[in-house]
Design a protein around this nucleic acid. Sequence first.
DNA 1: ATGACCTAACTTTTAGGA
Length: 261
Amino acid sequence: MLIATWNVNSIKQRLDHCLRFLKEAKPDVLCLQELKCPDEAFPAGPIEDLGYNVAVHGQKAFNGVAILSRHPLSDVRMGLPEANGDDHSRYIEAVISRPGGGVARVASIYLPNGNPLGTSKFGYKLAWMERLRVHAENLLALEEPLVLAGDYNVIPEPRDVYDPADWLGDALFQPESRGAFRRLIALGLTEAVRACDDRAGLYTFWDYQAGAWQRNRGIRIDHLLLSPQAADRLVETRIHKETRGWEKPSDHVPVSARLAF
DNA sequence: ATGACCTAACTTTTAGGA
């Protein structure tokens, strides 16, 4: 079972790229972030024509997450618990059931950016991460294959950025952000890419500005976190870097994990 | 040289992103 995540930076602008990725990589599940459209504007038709079921949690203009799956979706949850007025569409979760066996719970996550520091946006990011941690703890108690995939907006370690000094003042690389990410991992989750490859210089995002892609000034912020029952089945991961070279690309590229079922 | 982008919106400028 191939599970992928991709921040597409507007599904309407990136529909052709999304369809091409579905046709070429043939993921069983694709988690999308930054749809930037309300539910009713989500282009479900062409995606369904490729054999995918769709669960969408959209929002006008910003945010928005979705799960595409070749297999039936059930138990769809939209939004993290304890919203307390938080109306950002940043979390959707569903159970994927492969015909003939193999069930996994998958979440598509668009974690808040948190910039600039010193504003409520950074506090919102940290509070959201704590809500995610509590929810993940509850999901782990189910002791089932679980994949928390998405744009975490966290650079976990210095080896995940071309030049750490450039990011010291950024919410993505703050000690508090990295600590909250480690607390999530410490629940017993396995970060899929790092379980397969410990090299420096693995990136999933290159800014549109300043020729970041051409100069390979990237950062690694898109992650798949696996429960023990999913990690036991992890075969390989891939960063689909080639999509960043496509015409009018997203600034993020897909990341995928193959599980043995 | 320290510049350079992209997207959505009650659009002609601003907010948000990272």
